[in-house]
Design a binder for these strands. Sequence first.
DNA 1: GACTGGCACTCGCTACAGTCGAGTGCCAGT
DNA 2: ACTGGCACTCGACTGTAGCGAGTGCCAGTC
Lengths: 341, 341
Amino acid sequence: MGLDDRKLAVLRAIVEDYVATQEPVGSKALVERHQLGVSPATVRNDMAVLEEEGYIRQPHTSAGRVPTDRGYRLFVDRLSRVKPLSPAERRAIERFLVGAVDLDDVVHRTVRLLAQLTRQVAVVQYPSLARSKVRHLELVPISTTRLMVVMIADTGRVEQRLVELPAPVPAEHVTDLRRLVNEKLVGSQLAETPPLVQALVEESAPHLRPAMTTLSTVLLETLVERHEERIALAGTANLTRGGLLDFQGSLRPILEALEEEVVLLKLIGETEPSNTTRVLIGDENEIDNLRAASVVSTGYGPGATIVGGLGVLGPTRMDYPGNIAMVRAVARYVGELLAQN
Amino acid sequence: MGLDDRKLAVLRAIVEDYVATQEPVGSKALVERHQLGVSPATVRNDMAVLEEEGYIRQPHTSAGRVPTDRGYRLFVDRLSRVKPLSPAERRAIERFLVGAVDLDDVVHRTVRLLAQLTRQVAVVQYPSLARSKVRHLELVPISTTRLMVVMIADTGRVEQRLVELPAPVPAEHVTDLRRLVNEKLVGSQLAETPPLVQALVEESAPHLRPAMTTLSTVLLETLVERHEERIALAGTANLTRGGLLDFQGSLRPILEALEEEVVLLKLIGETEPSNTTRVLIGDENEIDNLRAASVVSTGYGPGATIVGGLGVLGPTRMDYPGNIAMVRAVARYVGELLAQN
DNA sequence: GACTGGCACTCGCTACAGTCGAGTGCCAGT
DNA sequence: ACTGGCACTCGACTGTAGCGAGTGCCAGTC
């Protein structure tokens, strides 16, 4: 399988042209627009090889070539040149993110920014609770048998939940509970909380036992098990660009997938290695509904740690180098923002 | 202008058939499917009148008739018969809403339920802060110069915000601040808070003044002015049903509009009169992007008070009676749920 | 042996003509 | 006031033809 340099150059040219024009690209157009230094006929031969190897294909016999998922993959892995952000883009990022007052605010601004820059659907995961540390736990008595538990994480996330106590608990006891819970849990990673919470129940004085027991149940339930992850989404209108040519005519499956938090988490939440950008192209995607889409995602967080993921989703025919650059840049800025916190 | 009973019956039949089949309906089909008791020719005469009056129109000369926005309006106002929920639907509502642990949970379940029942896009506004009363304000010291303010509303909503203090404040002072703020504000409607907060600053002891001042600014800013309203959305995938025939072929403007919180609030947030369902049909909509859509919305809240709005959005060609019934039913159930709180 | 020019061929796209039929408007008759 | 009948309109569909982009292949050249 000789994929010499020129064949690779041809593939790169095909991808770039197709992404730009959205139309199958033929041999003649190719030599005109790129300095390949050979004749159309030669390019045709190369194309035949590329097709045989599965990197490109013909929509119909008398049409130009279009990259396959495999072609995009090769392009992303070996052929794309890094595309530096324009000063305007750089400025847009800075301007957009200053003045955020809130974690909510940061996340919302980020997701809108990403959608606007890439002109794709943007997804941002809130800092994962599992990766956060407890900064403070507040117990607010609502009535004698009701307690509002508020957990503040070091990433700025705040979760709250109402607790129904089995029996009335006087204010002093609440103070005790608050002290105990904070002593034990503050500073610990949420994912490692369960044994600590367990110990808390066992060690607590008899008169606090019942309250502490229900409290612990709720803590575990809310903070560790149940929908601990949140997601923000923006730019769905961008799916309609490219007039139904992408996504083989129906946005249905895409929109459906975007409504499932679980799916989105799978897409951008799994990004482990920092500094790396993950690119999923078409079929590589495990979610059936998204077989016609590509995802560019990365992790973000203060400094080198990663507390969540963010990324964009669009047609396989997307500007990979550009999107990768933007996703990276935005992730870096958000990380810095969180570090200042 | 004679719109006798039969003409109205004809209009109703046209609307019902068109909504069901999505195809222009002709005179012959009409008399076959409905017991109008007259011949197609007579119906044709009636149709001519209805068209002249602007209730229906012909997409092209040799096609059947289609209702206009005005026709739908008349249908909704005078012709539609209430459509009682099926037992299955009733059960679905109940099943869906029990087991909600949280306000967040209630809202999310509600919006998904609505989307599923109506097969349209569903929108639910979180209980409006402006209409809520303060139940408790908690001040959590994060460091000596940072305070987390947590506000718990009687509707179950919880808002928090970080405050940067101008100078370090010792723990005892925080306790004082907490007491003062709660004494003054608990139980008051949020919309009426500003003067109270103002008074709070003026009345506070000199040593608390600086802290109270910044605190008050943040309180006003977060709770009254800034994005006090939240919205949940579901069922956007339903827009793709009816295969691009609705919305004249492009979902673009609709999706764009749905991303703007402000727009959605305008749609469902304005619903004042309880017990009433508001129906906006096509052009009646003030938002240009939504000129091809209809909105059915109503207010909800515990008992007779209204704390927020909810509704559905879909093509003008929608099942108005059904959607009205469902929106109402869901609003009532959610109200009951909130009342139990 | 690699590249090139030339040529025959494929096939989707567009335009055009013709037919079909659903649906209409109108009118004379009951 | 309603009805049956009839001429008419016009979109949808079908089939044909011509165009042209693009290909594959082959013989020739460096």
